[in-house]
Design a protein around this nucleic acid. Structure first.
Lengths: 195, 195
DNA sequence: TGAAAAATCTAGTTACTCGTATTATAATTT
DNA sequence: AAATTATAATACGAGTAACTAGATTTTTCA
């Protein structure tokens, strides 16, 4: 949902074509490692933005080479951008894939939950190490923004690890509790509320 | 990417039909608030799983009422599930929408960066409050798993808030640094590696 | 020396998966 | 008849993988 706004923001700087937008986007997020965006997504986003009237294309044919299609932002586009700046970003929903994996592991008995936790923890440590290395490689004099991005990743990974400890400590207790069952509601019009 | 595996896991428990899968999934993740899944996604996932041979449908017509199409897991499906259990989950890429918003705000000068931070911080505090309330409402005797999910959300929000402080403290410094520009790579065949 | 081959950038397309929004129809109960 | 659940379909948006085709530069070898 944010590539759309990023494209809009980059076009607010100056008119650009698709390929250029992609390069600019990746420069902004601190490199392709952090947030790679496929060309197809840029082009699809541009046509949707154009359909919404937030962006306009001037078909600027190239003397040689493939045609570049230059896009620029419209009045409506600027309004949409201001709107984006003025509202907070909605937190990602609390969708934890590891959690349902653990629950399904307990429910089906198809795997060892302790091993599950151990595998995931090892991965987290490895990721933490890799990012810490990248962080120390960055230059604080010129790449402060990128360093802050790494800091956030590190903070999240540390939280993940602390949470893993928590889960492990409570695992026996969880296993003693009943598995959540879907409560099928009665069909038809509900009885008149009594209480 | 994980609804697919969740469906597989639920079918490993016993054969089910689409609507039932949806209810079971939402029970597993601790309620619709945490992870709502649209019916369409369940049905699409089922047909894709069937195409991959991980799941089989036995067209079990209903005596009365709409036809229920019952699905069950295949041998291949069980293998795929074991594979999932045995590998760690890939961390979500470090895609921070707030970060690019801040960068674009600085680059375009279309909004006040301090206000941006303040707005986001307020939202985070509000979310933190809401989740804390939900957490205290849950019953540790029967909903321990769900409580752990809330704990993780809280840990993430606290990390977000600490990070906001960090960003704010360094903002002046960031603004003094040059905006990231896409680095144009030299065209043509690269020079022979010397080192 | 000069032509062919190799490697890589530039610009964009096609086809696919995953997920969301919205709508439709049938069954069941009050 | 009205309300509400049960089940499914359609359409769309976001994102990924893989590819095409030409331009540009360097290497290599006759």
């Amino acid at each position: 949902m944010s590539v759309r706004h990023a494209v809009l923001g980059l076009l607010a700087q100056r008119p650009r074509h698709g390929y250029e937008l992609r390069a600019a986007f990746e420069a902004f997020v601190g490199g392709r490692e952090n947030w790679e965006v496929n060309p197809a997504q840029i082009y699809a986003t541009l046509t949707r933005l154009e359909e919404s009237g937030l962006v306009r294309e001037h078909g600027m044919a190239q003397a040689s080479g493939p045609e570049k299609r230059i896009y620029s932002i419209t009045r409506q586009g600027k309004d949409a951008l201001r709107e984006w700046f003025s509202t907070a970003i909605e937190r990602e929903h609390q969708r934890d894939e590891f959690f349902i994996k653990l629950m399904l592991c307990l429910a089906t008995g198809q795997a060892d939950p302790y091993k599950l936790i151990q595998t995931q923890r090892a991965k987290l440590y490895q990721d933490l190490h890799n990012i810490t290395v990248q962080r120390t490689r960055a230059n604080p004099q010129a790449e402060l923004a990128r360093i802050l991005l790494y800091d956030k990743a590190i903070m999240y990974l540390e939280a993940d690890l602390r949470w893993m400890d928590l889960v492990q400590a409570r695992l026996d207790e969880i296993m003693r509790q009943p598995m959540p069952e879907p409560d099928l509601k009665p069909r038809g019009r509900p009885r008149k509320m009594q209480d």
